[in-house]
Amino acid sequence: MGIKACAAGFCCADVYQNIGVFYPTGNGIDWGIHLARMGVSVSAVSVVGKDEYGNKMREALAAEGFDISHLRVEDGDTSVMLMALKDGVDRVHLEAIDGVMETYRPNEDDRTFILEHDIIHTDLFGNCLDLLPEWHDAGKTVVMDFSVFSQDPEYACENHFPYVDYAFMSFEEDTPELRDWVRHVQGLGPRVAVATLGEKGSIAYDGERFYECGIVPAEKVVNTVGAGDSYIAGFTKGVIDGLDIPACMKAGAELSSRVIGSFEPY
């Protein structure tokens, strides 16, 4: 039996009302779609509302091959990010509607189901943070996207790093101060701490040395919204395939390059 991956936590619908386009998304959802397209068995554990967007999200993820048996449907609105396309290129966030995601909590059945997976992805906004110790103690490989918030006191990320195997963070510049932080994060528990740096590539630290990876240039940059999630997905697939850290970073950079060259976030 192959590796089973679970995207547990935040999900929403990105809705471009002015052009009539909708995408199911969320850090773990984007990650999972990439992995599913690369042949990995993926499940979604989250919630949608009893509305049109909820129905569309379940249909779209099922079509991607997701197990949606624990993508719960509850009374209320699906979490939505209203978007607009400005000048045909620039994406503008208009309004975030939390909907049923605001009060979502995995129930006991969800928790048992999550533990049936080998790799679990989560984020800061999916109301799953208190489950990190449970996953860690069960020996699961935990991938977590801390985005730009790893140093933000509001999110108390240092409480979560010890339970994560692969910690991904987003920054703009590779500086000595950043390397000190990445080294500190890895020292709290992760096997590998990774900082993505946008067009400047990425760095990773495994407790012994730093690794650097440049970007893979895209022929045309159309959409950078899904760049981070696709990098994490490519890196994760490298981990699944037993690749070393530089090869995982390269896999992330290659997938990210393909994604930013198209309008879709994956």
Rank of each mutant, 00 (worst) to 15 (best):
S170E: 11
K250F: 10
R179A: 00
H136R: 15
R72Y: 08
I240P: 12
P133F: 10
L255D: 12
T112H: 12
E264H: 14
E208G: 06
P133M: 02
Y266Q: 15
L132E: 02
D152N: 15
L94E: 13
C11D: 08
V222G: 03
E102P: 06
T224L: 01
Y16K: 02
V194R: 00
N107I: 05
S69M: 07
I245H: 09
G54D: 05
V47I: 02
A96F: 14
G49S: 00
Y266K: 11
D152G: 06
A247H: 04
E52R: 15
P246I: 09
N107R: 07
H34K: 14
G201W: 04
G49W: 00
D118E: 13
T112E: 13
N107Q: 12
E59M: 00
E59K: 13
I97W: 09
S147Q: 15
A60G: 08
H70A: 04
P162Y: 04
Q151M: 14
T122S: 01
H93N: 08
D30K: 12
T224K: 09
S79V: 11
F161L: 02
Q151H: 13
D241A: 11
L94T: 04
M83E: 02
G65S: 07
Y211R: 11
C248M: 04
F113A: 07
G99S: 13
I120H: 09
A193G: 15
I215Q: 10
A218N: 14
W135G: 06
